[in-house]
């Protein structure tokens, strides 16, 4: 892997993007034995407003903790997709929700337009588990973190009694 693998999870406040970032970073740092740093950026609102969570994964120590040349971008709103695509590396991965993001960016990217919100709603009836569905997609696509580690990190972070629900969402 290159020195830094940079992930940005973007969307709106309340979509669980910070928690998803924490889980992804914990998977890399605590279960895969790598270094990881997670940061966040959000507005003063509890719900709505732009929100993003970033994870840097590296075999080396990580100085600057924010993403500047992104390897993987998750977009759960059209606004986030429009705003952040320009920070993506060439051949970088975009995972965009097929319900929320209708206008996909053009450029030298690998784009996955996935039914993240719909999967959360139809399979569980709860759109708020969309973050865990998205993590499942990321865990399948990214070599820098193993699926087993993401699963372990999810189960150690989610509320008691929802482990099976979250496991089902992750495995999809």
């Amino acid at each position: 892997m290159s020195e830094r693998y940079e992930v940005r999870l973007s969307g709106a406040g309340g979509q669980g993007l910070v928690l998803a970032g924490v889980i992804l970073a914990e998977a890399a740092a605590l279960y895969d034995g790598k270094n990881a740093v997670q940061t966040q950026s959000y507005g003063p609102e509890a719900r709505g407003g732009a929100s993003k969570s970033e994870v840097i994964i590296s075999e080396f120590s990580i100085d600057y903790p924010k993403a500047t040349e992104i390897d993987l971008l998750l977009c759960l709103t059209q606004e986030a997709c429009d705003k952040y695509t320009s920070d993506l590396k060439k051949k970088g991965i975009i995972i965009a929700d097929s319900r929320m993001v209708k206008d996909l960016p053009k450029g030298d990217y690998v784009i996955y337009n996935l039914p993240i919100m719909d999967t959360a709603k139809e399979k569980v009836g709860k759109t708020f588990v969309a973050n865990i569905v998205a993590l499942g997609a990321i865990a399948h696509l990214v070599e820098e973190v193993s699926f087993d580690s993401v699963l372990k990190a999810v189960l150690s972070r989610v509320p008691k009694g929802t482990e099976n629900l979250n496991k089902r969402e992750l495995v999809g």
């Binding site: 924490v22 970073a25 740092a29 605590l30 270094n35 990881a36 740093v37 997670q38 940061t39 966040q40 990580i62 903790p65 924010k66």
Partner: peptide
């Protein structure tokens, strides 16, 4: 805010 909210091992 960065040092306070940043998560690291």
């Amino acid at each position: 805010e960065i040092i306070g909210h940043m998560r690291e091992k």
